[in-house]
Design a protein around this nucleic acid. Sequence first.
DNA 1: TATGAATGAGCCTTCATTCAT
DNA 2: CATGAATGAAGGCTCATTCAT
Lengths: 202, 202, 202, 202
Amino acid sequence: MGPTRRDARTASGGRPVPRRLLAAATRLFADQGYDRTSVQEIVEAAGVTKGALYHYFGSKDDLLHEIYARVLRVQQERLDAVAASSAPVAERLRAAAVDVAVTTIENLDDTKIFFQSMHRLGPEKYRQVRAERRRYHERFRALIEEGQREGVFSGATPADLVVDYHFGSLHHLSSWYRPDGALTPREVGEHLADLLLRALRP
Amino acid sequence: MGPTRRDARTASGGRPVPRRLLAAATRLFADQGYDRTSVQEIVEAAGVTKGALYHYFGSKDDLLHEIYARVLRVQQERLDAVAASSAPVAERLRAAAVDVAVTTIENLDDTKIFFQSMHRLGPEKYRQVRAERRRYHERFRALIEEGQREGVFSGATPADLVVDYHFGSLHHLSSWYRPDGALTPREVGEHLADLLLRALRP
Amino acid sequence: MGPTRRDARTASGGRPVPRRLLAAATRLFADQGYDRTSVQEIVEAAGVTKGALYHYFGSKDDLLHEIYARVLRVQQERLDAVAASSAPVAERLRAAAVDVAVTTIENLDDTKIFFQSMHRLGPEKYRQVRAERRRYHERFRALIEEGQREGVFSGATPADLVVDYHFGSLHHLSSWYRPDGALTPREVGEHLADLLLRALRP
Amino acid sequence: MGPTRRDARTASGGRPVPRRLLAAATRLFADQGYDRTSVQEIVEAAGVTKGALYHYFGSKDDLLHEIYARVLRVQQERLDAVAASSAPVAERLRAAAVDVAVTTIENLDDTKIFFQSMHRLGPEKYRQVRAERRRYHERFRALIEEGQREGVFSGATPADLVVDYHFGSLHHLSSWYRPDGALTPREVGEHLADLLLRALRP
DNA sequence: TATGAATGAGCCTTCATTCAT
DNA sequence: CATGAATGAAGGCTCATTCAT
């Protein structure tokens, strides 16, 4: 029976204010970049005032950090799930590669912001984000090393270089993937996984 | 004969003022980002005054554009040279891949700026830079398609996707390559070329 | 009989909310100044919310005014008591001088706020406070004039100038008196009274 | 012959911009207090824009510090001159006391700002100002101690307490001295010096 | 050629206060 | 009595750019 008390929703949207702000910021940061987007634009897009923004977020930086945290959390969880299966390592790596590509595309705005503006964060938050990102990379690298030890993957290229190579591509997905293009997110994911696994064939 | 008139060189370095400005801007943009670098910082680093900067460059944006033009020119020239050889296509692609990696590393600051700040350009200059960039991609893609037609490369993945995949990695080199690391630029180039060519094995 | 209904006391201290707010505000105003202290800080220090503050006080200014009223009331009462005695005027002046110094030190935070922030009050309240202050000065001056008429005090310096001179010092007590210093409040009071009375010797 | 090149004077006043800014800030700070005066008000009063202010001063704080430095410098110099004479110590102290009162009155705005807003300075500048102020006090105290050793002044009250007592009064001159009152600055100075010296009679 | 004082617009942030619940 | 989300106005400061010299 609907909200019975004031619960941070306004008539203009129905979604709670913090979420509206985050959504507006995400879109604007992705379109114009972090530095080029003013707090004024964000609150106007969200239909609130500056005071409201600073009621929920400590700073413009915080908004950015929140966006990062959201995408990092999702990807880490999904990778953990995939990597924990008992399938052969090649299948697990393929599944992980497809999955990370798909979720990257599904959150293309967040990813774009991530790699364009990560370095705008203050030193402390920057380190934190880098650390989480590194954990993600390491989980992925472990899969590759496992395959190399088993002999199903070539050991010609160091595993960490392979990871950097592959993720580099993912980070740039937002600069060439077009939602209205010929390929679905899944198809792109399959292709990228193909490339990775072929490059790893012994 | 030596310089007979004031020729925009000062005692402090000998290099002409415009080049000093460009060098200072490149370093600062790479370190702090374009938006975070003030014109004041640039002129101080170059040892000149604001008036001098605006004498040689129309705007801060111009500086950025100049940096882009420089790196684009260099890479295009080198790719043209490599691609024009008469060696088998696999060898030409490998040589091109190694070369682009090496020059990217040698101009890591420029590359970093390129991908971090490209979108700061006004629409017109932005289109121009994208067009040049596309020409570069197409030259590279043509090599892959040639190999696919000849059957020496797998046609499983569309050539343009392979190009985007590979260049995505290169664009992120600046975020993981460390000049003081274990691998020389050439070694990294060889590894990346290996990965590309293995991914293209039929 | 004990409190039978909610009476604005909370578990956290037992003291009623308005008093807790006043105490928190006094400490913070003295430490950081009135303008540098936010309402948010005050309510946090008092362990209540903004709504509570505005329930008891009309504005931040009111808080300040309340602090003034408190210190003015205390000092006026004590001066009245001392001055009304039937001792010789020199003794009464000395007692008054000692007393005002002691109470000033005992309420050093209030005094500090008083002289640092008095001018923040709106014109009306400002006039009111100044008037009360003046009444206090006049009471003190009357003692001096009495002594001058009797010939026990020198008349070389106009009484009101002597008052301004002496109170100026008191107002600055908060900037040099240290509770952990060598002198007790009473000792400081005696010294200041000495100085005043010696300056008034014929 | 007047200014031949651009020299930071504008038509609207003739005085250089920094001095105009300082004068405007001094008046406004004295009238309204530091916190209540906005940078916007200052630049409007000086007839320039904010950019100009920040061209000459690093911050609003800097303006304050500059005002302090000015008055501190003047007073220190004059005290040094007076104290260095070869007159008897009582005469030197009297001259110093008169002089400090006169210069305080002559720079009443600066003094007012000084004691109302000193604590607004950042910790570093605050320490610096306090240190200079202390040096001034110590110079004055040395005169009193000299007289006490010679027996021309009473030793009943510790010299540093006498100094704090006397300067406390001076600091509050701005709250009771009226330029349009009956007493000239010099007369006030003489009276205050009288009070001090009488309080120090053995 | 080169200077640097000055502009003017905009930026992020703070804060006392209100009000529906 | 009390909450705390939201407002709205202002505040200090930065910065690319211009222009008289």
